[in-house]
Design a protein around this nucleic acid. Structure first.
Lengths: 186, 186
DNA sequence: GCTTATGAGCGTACGATGTACACATGAGCA
DNA sequence: TGCTCATGTGTACATCGTACGCTCATAAGC
């Protein structure tokens, strides 16, 4: 379908030029279609961006599902490492997934748990496993998950705002901070 | 000077309409000056935004300097509370200060310490005081400061991306997480 | 005093952007 | 044959950042 062609073009442009560089005209040209054709399939540019956000989150979920570590703590550390890799190797798709404003429909209605993404659910399962093994303390899994997600997002956000001088420095600090954050709950 | 008039107009528009709503034309109109007059005083729009970032950071520094708590741990908690208040009551100025990309000149050259903002320096002094009192463990002050800053920035970034359903929920989670983060170093 | 250089401001114009609107085309069905 | 509906097009408009060249007042150098 032509909707797919338009979306694929958008994703290609996102990957190469980032959210800033993505214009409706460029997407249409790349899809070999008129500028206004996009509006037949997406309400407006924001709707297209939301689709890219979904796509980015799906890609992230796939990455997490591919992690094979048995031990829950090892699994959690692998997720941290995967998040770092995702942010550094696919920065634009990462931006779309984690920094774009979420549409009303996918806000968290009551608290951080409800309506949460599958990835957070998986993380909470592993946290509970680790707690059952006595490797993590009594803090509710939600709070641990939020701490990890918050710290990770914060450091990446700082890196995006050019608050570090190099990727190498960022990588080192990210690993150290996340590791400490996780261990602070044990 | 007319540079000040232009800058004041920019700050007023930032406060009312946010970074998205700030256009050169609007600024000029508000300053009662032609559109191109801005370019006599700022190289381009980014230079104006950088000036707004400086202004926001200066405002934040002033807030922190006004904190009067004697006890270092109380002082640190007051900073956390002030950060939350700043983010919620002056969201656009906060955006300019903490989410705008920093120009090359003010990146952190070697590590997170060097070239750091006065506020981080003040925070590190208090952390060291708390360590001297035996209220915080042996983790270097830089790492503690980065943890606090990272967690705070991450949670605010999530709230900006509409990841929470209400300010109230955000406020509660923010306080709990930051408090835990600080205590995890003691 | 006269000339000239400098700095501030202005008006116009260009290309890019998001998108409203009216229209064309063609497939499925009555 | 005529109707509806989904899909796509082309034109047009407002808004954006900003390049370019002009005016004009003030200050410096002779």
């Amino acid at each position: 379908m032509s909707k797919d062609r338009i979306f694929d073009a958008a994703r290609a442009i996102l990957d190469h030029e980032g959210i800033e560089g993505l214009s409706v005209r460029k997407v249409a040209a790349r899809a070999g279609v008129s500028t206004m054709a996009m509006y037949r399939h997406f309400a407006d540019k924001d709707a297209l961006l939301n689709a890219l956000m979904d796509d980015g989150l799906a890609a992230w979920e796939k990455v997490v599902r591919a992690i094979r570590a048995e031990d829950p703590m090892e699994w959690l550390e692998a997720v941290i490492e995967a998040f770092l890799k995702f942010a550094l190797t696919q920065p634009h798709r990462f931006d779309a997934a984690f920094f774009l404003p979420a549409p009303e429909a996918r806000r968290y209605p009551d608290d951080f748990v409800a309506g949460r993404s599958p990835v957070i659910a998986m993380i909470m399962v592993r946290i509970d496993q680790a707690k059952a093994d006595g490797r993590l303390g009594g803090t509710p899994a939600v709070d641990v998950a939020l701490a990890l997600a918050g710290m990770a997002q914060g450091l990446v956000s700082m890196q995006r705002a050019k608050r570090f001088s190099s990727d190498k420095q960022f990588r080192t600090l990210f690993r150290a901070q996340l590791r400490h954050c996780l261990q602070s709950f044990s």
